[in-house]
Amino acid sequence: MYTQGLDPSGASADPKSGAETSADLERFQSRIDAEQKVEPKDWMPEAYRKTLVRQISQHAHSEIIGMQPEGNWLTRAPTLKRKAILLAKVQDEAGHGLYLYGAGETLGTSREQMVDGLLSGKAKYSSIFNYPTLTWADVGAIGWLVDGAAIMNQIPICRCSYGPYARAMVRICKEESFHQRQGFEIMLELSRGSKEQKDMAQDALDRWWWPSVMMFGPSDSESKHSAQSMAWKIKRFSNDELRQKFIDVTAPQAEFLGLRIPDDKLQYDAESGHYRFGEIDWREFYDVLAGNGPCNRQRLRHRQKAHDEGAWVRAGAKAYAAKHEGHSRTSRPRAAAGCQHG
């Protein structure tokens, strides 16, 4: 979901390029249909590989950039417990980015290439992170809504056809559940607090609701490549299905909090068992995607700065390793050595 709808034009290799025959493609498809996993050195269509590299790296970038809006309130967290929880959450996000870059690296790209893609602006990341976190309540709203939406998408990807990506997602999902809970708990505490705190919570919901709903991306009818991704079991549910599920699950939670979702058309329809909701203004989504959101420039600049300022550090470490090349082999710490005793 951090990648839904990010490249509506998509990239797909001409299936006749290279030497991919339709027999190869059919054989590959039957493996997929039989729910067999594809592993790094297995034969795969070039378009499958490309789609995965793009989706996985965009997912990784989203985790890394996502650390910024949340990290924004680390130094101002209102209690030591909240500070610690938020630190752990942001640390998890770095870890998730790392697992995903690792999965991407099994497909013929490198961490460096993927990061270059992000910093050059060529690679996308989930546009939700281009919004500012203006109050402490935003931290709660992000946990509750944004992580809530992410979980909805991530669980199906645990069963995606590409092994390393699926395994990374399993790790991520295990860690993700606490993220949403901590967000909801923050909102709960605020909604039971002073008038100012309630207003703070409502204001955060007012600003984060629609961007969260837009996270699922435009309707699949807009995307030519949704069908192929579904066939290859990279994508398992449609954008609209996931969005509906999210709204159905979240609306009652908002009611419980005593907060009002900023959608006049939102209404439970007993017949279908789903919530009806208002029309999404996709202009905002495409605008932010194109780089015209409140924080796009800031997020990338921040990331670029960290990268640039770290160059001398990375170079220093590498120079040391080169100087002591033989050394590190012989002075390997005991903890790592020995197959029998490890």
Binding site: L74, Q91, L98
Partner: peptide, 22 residues
């Protein structure tokens, strides 16, 4: 150390730094 989050020279150091802060 909390101030340093998102500023590490490499992603692996982000995790180390957050661990120290925690």
């Amino acid at each position: 150390l909390s101030e340093l989050v998102t500023q590490a020279p490499e992603l692996e150091e982000e995790l180390a730094n957050a661990n120290f802060a925690l």
